[in-house]
Design a binder for these strands. Structure first.
Lengths: 112, 112
DNA sequence: ATTTATACATAATATTCTTATGTATAAAAT
DNA sequence: ATTTTATACATAAGAATATTATGTATAAAT
């Protein structure tokens, strides 16, 4: 993903959040949406995305529905109930992460 | 590091930033400082920290100075000139990352 | 005397991602 | 007409980064 190593570990959270907002999406759509939302700065690679989707499905966080559009396959993913709960948890973790990084990188208070 | 997977990839940036602020630090000190600054939420493991410090040193971003205090060894690390430059780059990347994650997770504008 | 804290280190394993490769159809460009 | 680009999925080999487990050694606290 992208050029920066910082995204490592955040792909699942990104996928879950997009599905929370958009009800159902397919893989290729996710890559394009992320590109748009980050103005081209974040490009999800297929080698990361598809295994991630499969894993989230196997964990019971996503349901899949295969559809044929213009003679091409699409696999639409949507959050399960468990997935919706887990998304809230992941988002809380993300916010905690960002708060912590801000403390470390731009501390408003300091013990020095 | 911690419980969340999100920190994967950010350890180097954290180390560099702490050294930018504190001139020189030793490994154990870094683990304790991070723990304090995050109110215990982020605990750097030694198995991640020491290899990271060695790598940053081998890349020429850190200089090391071995000191004996109370008959115990300490390896003090500090930024090289190259390390100072690289720290600025990494911090800019971190800020870009956080902006992008905010766009993805809490978009102020939306194309939907 | 034992445990906890300080202080370093590395090996085996797990996780996550990149890069490369593969299949297949539709649309656009040459 | 043919080649390239876009759409749409997938997986395997390898790199990068972290966890867990283990090891050495000294000082302080229980």
């Amino acid at each position: 993903m992208g050029n920066s190593k910082l995204y490592k570990g955040s792909l699942n959270t990104i996928i879950l959040k997009l599905l929370e907002k958009n009800d159902k999406m397919y893989g290729y759509e996710i890559t394009q949406r992320v590109k748009e939302l980050t103005k081209g700065e974040l490009e999800i690679t297929e080698g990361a995305l598809y295994p991630a989707l499969h894993k989230l499905e196997s964990e019971g966080l996503l349901d899949v529905e295969v559809v044929k559009v213009d003679n091409r396959m699409r696999k639409y993913y949507k959050l399960t109930q468990k997935g919706t709960t887990e998304t809230a948890n992941r988002l809380a973790e993300l916010e905690a992460f960002i708060r912590n990084m801000e403390h470390l990188v731009n501390p408003k208070w300091s013990i020095d």
